[in-house]
Structure formats: C-alpha cells, structure tokens
C-alpha cells in the first residue's frame, strides 16, 4: 500500500492497484482511454521519485527524463507526489530586462528572476498578463548564471498578447511566468548522431536553445539548421548563425525564403522542400521541428517516411488559439 499526493490531498493506492484505478476510485478527474499503456491518455508526472520502468515503457526519452509515466501501467513501489496535466500551473514573477527588435516584426524579450529557473533549452513556458490572458512562448536560451529567460516574439496583427508585449511592456515591468513544459529538447546521448533542426519564423527560438545546448554538451555529429520565412526581413540572427557555423565545423546553417526576392546566400523555397531536396535518408537522425503547425505536421510525417524513427522526432507546433 502506498500514498499518492496531489497538491494537499492524499490518496491510498492499494497493493496490486494501478495509479489510474486508485485515482478513479477516489473520484479524481483524470483522462484515460485504453488502460493498456498504448493510448498515452493518462500520462502524468511524478515530482518526487522515478516511476517504475514498466510505467514509462514506450514514452519518449525526454518525457522519461522528466518522470512522466502512464498512470494505468504504474503499480507504485513507494509513495509518490503527482502532477496532473490540467493542474493549475505554479507561476512566479519575473522582471523584463530587455525588450528590443530582432527584425521588423519580432522582439527579443528577456525576463530575469531572483532565483534559478530550471528548464531544458527548447522547452516553453506560459506568460500571463495581470488580467489572466495567457500564451505559450518557447525559451530561446540555455540556463544562465543570471537566471534569465530569452524569448523571440512575433507580432500577430490584431493578436492580443503579442501586440501587448510589443507595444506596452517595457523594461522594469514584471510578468508572471509558469513552470517550463514540453518535451522538445536535447538529451546528451548518442553524440555522433546527426541532428536536423527545422523552424519557421519564431520557431527559431527553441531551436536556438537546442543548438546552443547541443554544441555546449559536445555533440560531434552533423547539426543542420534550416530557418524559413517569406521575406528576408522576417528572418533574424542570420549573421550570428553564419558565425556559429564558421566556429563549429559540424554545424551548418541554411536560411530559406519562400517569397520571390532571394538575395545571395539564401535558398529559395519552402523549408520542407529544401530540406528534402538535400536529405533523402533520415535514418538514424534526430529531428526537431518548430513553428507553423502546418509545416510541423507535414514535416513530421515526411521525416518519418524518410526513415527517422518516431522516438527521434521532436516537434512543437506553435498553435494559435482559435476563438
């Protein structure tokens, strides 16, 4: 018999009873479907102990690493503290220390915290305005001594949150920031593996973090970054990426433009087409896809069909709330 703790509440898990069955018996509202470990509907997270291995079977490495597990497959061996997917996030206040333009429609926003902020480069957080309006944004840097998080935020014309960040938020303002989430990040394993990073627009933000992380952790395999947008004015960090490519022989950078004006040094076309004209076989590659949902969903399937293993494809679709 073990104890399950969620927030302040404690529940008993009987011997031979799964975490899912215990929580359902206790009337805790948790999504589930197959109860066989296949559908992953009941995935939750342990905040104190490593879950039994059998409850993590079939999950992505980056989820296993954060102690996610399947409640229906988990027969606890010790007391567990749990975090459910819809459990309200813990927010803390940060202070804006930089708000400047990266290009004509994207700002660099840097938020500083008093204490260390733990995250993996490539994860995202929710930012919240004082009236409760909340949006997700990807972290673009790796953990810093200065406890700062960096964001790249594109102005969506008429967009409530992005226009507010662009037009009204200034240095010195405070803003609420959630705990980090998402499983699109670099794990220091298989250093010789090829890494493909593909992003559109501010999809560069998580990729820049992942790239910095991989290089800092001594990744030796080839790393290819493709960054796409319509016009050259919508790309950013172009010189910095070229410089990085000069410093790291295993890093390669390709800026892509889908519009009609293509200056020297840029490749014409949509990122998907450009990537797959250069890569016919992605067997053994680790693939990161971030940005426009259509690009991400299409590329996910294409990368898989070109041989990348399902477990090696990490994606963040920047879904925009529909209302």
């Amino acid at each position: 018999m073990t104890t399950l703790t969620i927030d302040q509440n404690k529940y008993v898990c009987q011997t031979g009873e799964s975490v899912l069955d215990a929580l359902l018996r206790e009337n805790v509202n948790l999504a589930f479907a197959c109860k066989k470990g296949t559908c992953h509907s009941c995935m939750i997270r342990s905040t104190n102990v490593t879950p039994p291995q059998s409850a993590q079977s079939g999950l992505k490495n980056t989820l296993i690493n954060q102690n996610y597990f399947l409640a229906c497959q988990c027969y606890p061996e010790q007391d567990m503290h749990l975090k459910l997917p819809d459990q309200s996030d813990f927010y803390r206040m940060g202070t804006v220390v930089t708000n400047e333009l990266l290009n004509r429609n994207t700002i660099l926003l840097i938020i500083a915290f008093e204490d260390a902020f733990e995250f993996n480069a490539g994860q995202f957080v929710n930012l919240q305005r004082s009236d409760g309006l909340t949006r997700s944004y990807s972290i673009a840097n790796v953990p810093q001594q200065s406890n700062t998080l960096e964001f790249h935020i594109r102005r969506l014309p008429g967009g409530k949150f992005s226009e507010w960040l662009h037009d009204e938020v200034s240095v010195g303002d405070s803003i609420a920031v959630s705990e980090p989430g998402g499983h699109c990040f670099y794990l220091p394993e298989r250093h010789e593996q090829g890494i493909l990073l593909v992003g559109t627009g501010t999809g560069l933000a998580p990729l820049a973090g992942i790239l910095t992380d991989a290089l800092a952790q001594g990744h030796t395999g080839p790393i290819h970054l493709f960054h796409g947008s319509r016009e050259v004015e919508d790309l950013y960090r172009i010189n910095e990426m070229h410089q990085l490519a000069e410093q790291h022989p295993n890093f390669n950078y390709t800026p892509c433009l889908s519009g009609t004006k293509i200056p020297d040094g840029f490749v014409m076309g949509r990122v998907n087409d450009i990537v797959f004209s250069q890569f016919t076989d992605l067997k053994g590659w680790r693939v990161f896809l971030c940005g426009h949902p259509d690009m991400v969903n299409q590329m996910k399937k294409q990368a898989f069909l070109k041989g990348a293993a399902i477990a090696d494809i990490y994606a963040d679709a920047f879904l925009v709330a529909q209302h």
């Binding site: 066989k36 296949t38 079939g58 399902i310």
Partner: peptide, 14 residues
C-alpha cells in the same frame, strides 16, 4: 495528428 495514429497502430499490433 501522427502521434494519435501511432498510438492506434500500437493497439492494432498488440
């Protein structure tokens, strides 16, 4: 949604 499809394929094989 490829991830959902893959979960169904796993159910199929199981």
């Amino acid at each position: 949604d490829m991830d959902k499809q893959i979960a169904k394929q796993k159910a199929f094989f199981t």
